[in-house]
């Protein structure tokens, strides 16, 4: 248990009724917040209060609350998930804040992530990116034996670095250009280091990166804000790999 005392905070929260509503900030008081609570639990407390008063609770995305599902978002005090290394909003604890702090909470801001309500954005553009090539084509049938295809430890590790992506969209939110490059590249990198992904490597890079352009994500200008904001610490290396595949695929494509 923390020795820190419970605290009172002032929240500036983005409220927006619907996709079409213009939206704006509203101020709320979060009272008697325990330093052991998570950021989402703090919002739960505020919402209980709002419901008791007959007001509309603040809408925000969440699911597993253990940092692995990628549902929680929130742009907290100018950074996705609050900007703490390797931390999702659900795993961000209130001990990082002080009594009397003012906290600004905004939704992810990007054209392909339209706000649905309050702090909830529509991230189905990520699903369409994966549909464009974030898979391997295999015939269904009996499950292959584990380890039937030997994969060197180093390659497995490189693939796993990228596969830890939870698709939360913090990379897009943090990027000065709202580029989805880290997300797309994580999917490309995860598969390109494995023999199962090699067959569609070039086509995948071409289709996924073109899809990102079509969805209206911005372009990467090597700021690496995504890398700093990623709650899963996905390295910038994956983006260089994706560019390499894209350049090779563009130069050698025949269809």
């Amino acid at each position: 248990m923390s020795t820190q005392k419970n605290m009172n905070l002032t929240l500036q929260v983005w409220r927006q009724k619907s996709k079409r509503d213009a939206g704006g900030f509203k101020t709320y008081q979060a009272k008697n917040i325990s330093p052991d609570q998570s950021f989402l639990e703090m919002l739960d407390v505020v919402n209980e209060d709002l419901i008791a008063k007959g007001e509309e609770p603040i809408a925000f995305d969440h699911d597993c609350r253990e940092g692995i599902c990628g549902m929680c978002s929130l742009f907290i005090n100018g950074a996705p998930h609050g900007g703490f290394p390797g931390t999702t909003t659900c795993q961000l604890h209130m001990r990082h804040f002080k009594d009397g702090d003012e906290i600004t909470i905004e939704p992810w801001r990007a054209k392909p992530f339209p706000v649905l309500k309050d702090l909830i954005v529509d991230r189905t553009s990520f699903d369409r990116l994966v549909q464009a090539g974030g898979y391997i084509s295999v015939n269904t049938g009996g499950a292959p034996d584990a380890n039937a295809v030997p994969i060197p430890k180093k390659d497995a590790d490189l693939a796993m670095d990228a596969a830890s992506c939870i698709g939360c969209g913090a990379c897009v939110a943090a990027c000065p250009n709202a580029s989805a490059m880290l997300f797309v590249s994580a999917k490309i990198s995860q598969l390109r280091h494995l023999p199962q992904g090699e067959a569609e490597r070039k086509k995948r890079a071409l289709n996924m990166l073109n899809r990102a352009d079509q969805e209206g994500f911005g372009s990467c200008r090597n700021h690496f804000e995504c890398e700093a904001a990623c709650p899963k610490d996905i390295p910038r290396r994956v983006m260089a790999e994706a560019y390499r595949d894209y350049i090779e695929a563009s130069a050698l494509r025949e269809e």
């Binding site: 500036q12 983005w14 900030f25 742009f75 005090n77 100018g78 950074a79 900007g83 600004t104 905004e106 801001r109 943090a174 700021h223 690496f224 804000e225 890398e227 700093a228 904001a229």
Partner: peptide
């Protein structure tokens, strides 16, 4: 964003 930090 109303508030945006510079991270890296």
């Amino acid at each position: 964003y109303a508030k945006k930090k510079r991270l890296r």
